[in-house]
Design a protein around this nucleic acid. Structure first.
Lengths: 208, 208
DNA sequence: TAGATTGTTAATCGATTAACAATC
DNA sequence: TAGATTGTTAATCGATTAACAATC
């Protein structure tokens, strides 16, 4: 294991994970950096550099064992260690994410869902009722969720995030437009800025 | 306007757009790169470099006019030019995105929604019925959508994407795990890999 | 004018690519 | 052994930061 792993490397790991899955499905259990580079549209050099950040996973003259490599990536990403998480905001996008994402596969166990809207409170998602956001404090003091998925409008996101940080939440999967990292530099944040992404597509269309 | 604008710069533009919005709401109509850098957690240098890729938007000794700057960014991102788009796959995530995203604000006008599931066909989203995916060919030949939002499982995504490219769709907002760019290098793709994002959060939690 | 802040060039830093010796 | 392919160092490329002259 080398020193500091760069962000660029980390962001490529899930993609490797995905492609290794595909190889496994095709019954391929051995792959060289050259072959993988062609399949993924990267350079073989980059692939070898990336993997070598974490140790020596390959074998000279042979390549990489698909299964072992994927297990290493699972380990690096920490997908086997489970973290508790709550979903705050179960509107259009919150509900979509809640139902679409297989949290368990990626190291998260959802322990609660919250919304402010009375009409949503009590509805079942998975096999859990949506709770009133007024019970957030109490719930967190009892259950100590480690992470929160934030699917709220920007103003609510700001307030609720600060509240959750006080309650000990350490990591946020942030779907809101609120920039958590600016106010809370020491908190772990992963942003999903859908609007930003769509604007980028608009840019590409303009400058094709 | 300089030569090639780097990807890193483009990806920062929507974020500038967002922060300028916030400034406008606060009634601030003038900002220096130094102040903005503190608010956004960037260097002032980078901000000036970024804006200078596209022209001279500021004024020495004064800074930038918030309104003008935002209009320039809107122009650069092409948010005023409207593009027609369809949404393919109206399951959990497709529906969430369809209802959550304000496509019109970002240069897109949704002209059709499609799903394969009979139980969904006919249901109304916005003021449009979800159509059967079997009518995709006919619809595209008549309406020529420029872009498609892909919210499908990986296998369906692969097939439908190829079909849509044949029908003249030029750009994809891709929520599937299928890597469009590998098979179709000349097509415009903007990926939203939610699973990848969540795995990154898992990594951060492991290596906090 | 003096102060502030841009636009822009130069320096630094980091990430990607190329090359090749080590080794299976 | 000969061929293949890794692990790793060195070279290149690109992006960020620093510095400062231009100018409002």
């Amino acid at each position: 294991m080398k020193e500091k792993i760069s962000n660029s490397v980390i962001r490529r790991l899930p993609r490797y994970y995905r492609f290794l899955d595909e190889l496994k499905e095709q019954g391929i259990n051995r792959i060289s950096s050259g072959e993988l580079s062609r399949k993924m549209g990267l350079t073989a050099s980059q692939i070898r550099q990336d993997f070598n950040c974490f140790g020596e996973f390959g074998q000279q003259g042979y390549g990489y064992n698909v299964d072992i490599l994927q297990k290493e990536i699972i380990n690096i990403l920490g997908l086997e260690k489970m973290h508790t998480a709550i979903i705050v905001g179960v509107g259009n996008i919150g509900r979509g994410v809640a139902q679409h994402i297989n949290f368990n596969n990626f190291g998260f166990s959802i322990t609660g869902l919250f919304d402010i809207k009375e009409s949503l409170v009590g509805q079942m998602v998975y096999n859990m009722p949506i709770r009133n956001i007024s019970s957030l404090d109490e719930f967190c003091r009892e259950n100590h969720p480690e992470a929160a998925v934030i699917c709220l409008p920007v103003d609510a996101a700001k307030v609720i995030t600060a509240q959750l940080i006080n309650l000990g939440v350490k990591a946020f999967w942030n779907f809101s437009h609120y920039d958590i990292a600016v106010d809370h530099p020491d908190i772990l944040v992963e942003n999903v800025h859908l609007n930003d992404s769509l604007m980028t597509l608009s840019y590409k269309l303009k400058n094709n």
